[in-house]
Amino acid sequence: MSTNELTLTLVGWLGAEPKHYPGLGGATPFTSFRMASTRRVFDRDRGAWTDGRTEWFTVKCWRGAARNVAESLRKGDPVVVHGRLSTDEWAAPEGTRTTLVLDAIAIGPDLSYGTARFARTVHPDGAGEGSADGAGVDADLVGLPDEPGRLAALAVLAEPDPDEATSEALASVG
Rank of each mutant, 00 (worst) to 15 (best):
D77Y: 13
D133C: 08
A135H: 15
A106H: 13
G76I: 03
V142P: 03
V81L: 06
D146M: 02
L141N: 14
E168P: 00
Y113W: 09
T50F: 14
V11Q: 11
G114Y: 06
E55K: 10
P29A: 01
M1H: 11
H82L: 04
E94D: 15
D138W: 07
V41A: 14
V156E: 05
A152S: 10
R150V: 04
F57K: 13
F118L: 10
V59M: 03
L144F: 08
R34I: 00
P93G: 06
G134W: 01
N68K: 12
G26T: 07
W49Y: 14
G128P: 12
A119N: 09
L85K: 03
P93I: 09
G12I: 00
H20T: 06
V11A: 06
T58C: 14
A48V: 11
L111K: 07
I107W: 01
V59A: 01
Y113H: 11
W49Q: 02
R117F: 00
S172Q: 12
N68H: 12
R97W: 12
V80D: 01
L8S: 09
A65D: 13
L14C: 10
V59G: 04
A171V: 05
M35V: 04
A66H: 08
W56Y: 15
D51Y: 02
L157S: 07
R63H: 07
G76V: 08
V101N: 09
G25L: 04
K75C: 08
H123W: 13
G95F: 13
G52A: 03
A92G: 14
T31D: 02
F42I: 00
T115M: 08
V79F: 11
F33E: 02
T3P: 01
A36E: 02
L85D: 02
F33G: 07
A36H: 02
A92D: 15
S86K: 09
T99D: 14
T115R: 08
T98F: 12
